[in-house]
Write a protein that binds this DNA or RNA. Sequence first.
RNA 1: GGAGAGAUGGCUGAGUGGUCGAAAGCGCUCCCCUGCUAAGGGAGUAUAGGUUGAUAGCCUAUCCAGGGUUCGAAUCCCUGUCUCUCCGCCA
Length: 427
Amino acid sequence: MLDPKLLRTELDDVAVRLQKKYFNLDVSQVEALEAERKSAQMAVEVLQAERNKQSKMIGQAKAQGEDVAPLLAQVADLGARLAEQKTQFESVSEQFQSLVLAIPNIPDASVPVGKTEDDNVEIRRWGEPGSFDFPVLDHVALGEQGHSMDFEVAAKVTGSRFVTLRGELAQLHRALTQFMLDLHVNEHGYEEVYVPYIVNSESLRGTGQLPKFGEDLFKLEGEKDFYLIPTAEVPVTNLLRDVIVSEDQLPLQFVCHTPCFRSEAGSYGRDTRGMIRQHQFEKVELVQLLRPEDSAQAHEALTHHAEVVLQKLELPYRVVNLCGGDLGFASAMTYDLEVWLPGQDAYREISSCSNYLDFQARRMQARWRNSRTGKPELLHSLNGSGVAVGRALIAVMENYQQRDGSIAIPAVLHSYMGGKAVLFRDV
RNA sequence: GGAGAGAUGGCUGAGUGGUCGAAAGCGCUCCCCUGCUAAGGGAGUAUAGGUUGAUAGCCUAUCCAGGGUUCGAAUCCCUGUCUCUCCGCCA
């Protein structure tokens, strides 16, 4: 959520800056609602002040044994007038609130101009895509060995966009997860957290998935407002909802492994082959909450932490700075890591590292107490995948494939695979 | 699932219709005293919104949340959420 004060004082400027995200802010609507809000709120508060004053007088009169009937007569219609104004004010502020909740975060000045992912700007590359002296297979073909990766059985068990893994491949999937968690905990100083995989709507509002993007979520049937998490970002960032932390606890750095569930509405026909886009996948997520002055640097550091995963796995990747049109709703600036997939002959997203500034924190009232001023201030929140486990798995498969269909295991994973160095040797 | 209890400021904990945003204690901050890692005295110490040149004032809201009763609600009524205790069940 944007600062309502900003909408009041720099509305035109905000509108201009939001254009970069191809969001058209209806300036006159905001102005009109704000004007209405102001007069409605003042009307309510004046009446409330009047009521409080009168009630106090009645109380005093009664205490002195005086006849309060005339005083009561004076306030006879006050309640009705107040109720009327209140209804009016509530309706206006509700409208204003839902309008503001639907406004995306303002992109950072450094965000490239552009509409689609083609306009993203490459920042750097790491590693060289390997050259193969045999026809490369994609992960689907590689996974067919021994039914290690099976989309058909998953379709039977559940439906499309699900997968089952078996044997060594399932193990490798787990090994990747453990490796990433250990790396971030032991070398990057993150605190590991375990969280619910089901969240309520307040949490989703806090991180920005709701109210606008409900169609991307799996909602549970029942009386409660429960959803499957689309990312660990939701439960982890919401740990700080309605919390004021002391400055010496900052920065908060959490790493969390969870499954993620996405309906993938609107992506019909895209990435239908293979494990790239699934309704269920796993992710090791990095989340940081810290002082505003630290967030820019932390964003670079967090991105680097995700990169280290790929470097240690020796997977070629590049880093792109998302253009305005490709930027997420809540993000002010996002770096995507794109890993090289020989099977697709392309770089594909494997991590997305975003700085939300105070956008999420304002929605969820996540604050810290500034020791200098003694006052609570909004935190800045960041997160990034460190990294998507399913995509890391297919990146390893495709980049480490060998002529005979076996797959070498990256050196850093050997210890997690019981010393094993090759997959599918005996298949 | 059954039965009961509860939710008040950073913490403990008073407060059952009227100057209660809320006693007291603890903690914390500042000042005084004290020649010392003790004690004492004083002042202060929530958040959000509005108004304003203003981190000054003033106004409003907030005692789990949402409704209701009332001129007036932390206090009464209803609903919900959460916590605790006992029983049952259970990975």
